[in-house]
Design a protein around this nucleic acid. Structure first.
Lengths: 209, 209
DNA sequence: TAGATTGTTAATCGATTAACAATC
DNA sequence: TAGATTGTTAATCGATTAACAATC
């Protein structure tokens, strides 16, 4: 596998391919051509073939792709069977919702720590995990070595918590606050700026008229 | 103002500009050059000038941009003072979190309807709004004419609700389910695929090693 | 005026699409 | 084998960056 300099745009499309192939598999479809898949997904067949060929030739000329094999290959690329441990920091409305709403297991993510500062929340349990005080986070990180921290914190709290986690060696952050983080080279931050997304939608709706 | 064929990539950057300018304004900064702003935002000065010039020449040669004026201009482009009404459909963990966590007012959005099917939820109040049964949604839409529907529904429920809302003339959808929606030409869908985002992060963290 | 910085055109870069020889 | 569809190279398109004349 080539890897490494695969464009981020391509990587961002992988989970979507994985999702569609999973659905096809469930519906009993054994085989699919790039053309057929492209019609379902509303992308070009060219793009599908280009994207897949960053990782290897998974298809067969004259036949197309074996759905199950391709599903497994993309799962491997996404290292879906390689479980990744994550802490959630900030057990407010949004943190609580993510913990309870998302099926982390399906994504190969295991929650192993929850943290907050609010004394009413600290000590409670969610999904079988006790919410600890943020002051204990450093110790927990050293012990459990999570790969990812999910930050659902107010803007002002985000940066100090980020720094703390980086200093303890955490390399991945899923950031839901509007605070912009400038990560060191070996640290990855994936931002979910909900308000930016909503404002973009607003703009487009108003333009439409 | 030119408008219309402004690339979507540019539009998606506007809320971020708006955010930075708001922060600058709060910190008492009166004036800023594209170069200075570019260093803070980690984009090129060229990009900032190009982006802004899709909408008009807001700067002054030799001086830069007046922070307050530019903030207001971008606010106008985003029609921030033009309130947009929205319904939330699906008052589960995620819907509840969005209703309580996001500051809709700041984004020029007003929640005017909440809907669910769960009898334990229907009839309760959130942010002063009574949760109604989804069966009443059509009637509510006709009466309150919301521009946007926020869909925080299970995959299987998303499409029928989407169709219902489209048939009543709603033109904008903020979709949190993994169900892919193919909208008619005059309807805008902004997807927030949380699981895709998390899987992308996972991939990048594993690559890093 | 001289210096600074814009608005805008031109050059570059990267991503997408088209085309087709290879081959199952 | 003939037909189909891949893997891959080449062409196109769009977005980003650089450059600079205009001008405050």
């Amino acid at each position: 596998m080539k890897r490494k300099n695969v464009p981020l745009t391509v990587i961002r499309r992988l989970p979507r391919y994985y999702r569609y192939l999973g659905d096809l598999l469930k519906s009993g479809c054994m085989r699919i051509s790039s053309k057929e898949l492209s019609e379902r997904m509303r992308v070009t067949a060219s793009q599908i073939r280009q994207d897949l060929n960053y990782f290897g030739g998974f298809g067969q000329q004259g036949y197309g792709y074996n759905v199950e094999a391709l599903y497994r290959e993309i799962g491997d690329i996404l290292s879906i069977n390689n479980t990744c441990d994550a802490f959630v920091v900030g057990i407010g409305h949004l943190g609580t919702a993510l913990v309870n709403h998302l099926n982390f297991g399906l994504m190969g993510v295991r929650l192993t720590g929850l943290f907050d500062i609010n004394p009413e929340v600290v000590g409670t349990y969610m999904q079988g995990i006790r919410v600890a005080h943020i002051d204990e986070a450093g110790e927990y990180i050293e012990r459990l070595k999570p790969q990812i921290a999910i930050l659902t914190l107010p803007k002002t709290e985000t940066l100090p918590v980020f720094s703390l986690f980086v200093s303890h060696g955490v390399k991945g952050f899923w950031n839901f606050s509007n605070m912009e983080i400038v990560p060191p080279d070996d640290v990855v931050v994936e931002n979910v700026h909900l308000s930016d997304s909503l404002m973009t939608l607003r703009y487009r709706v108003f333009q439409q008229q």
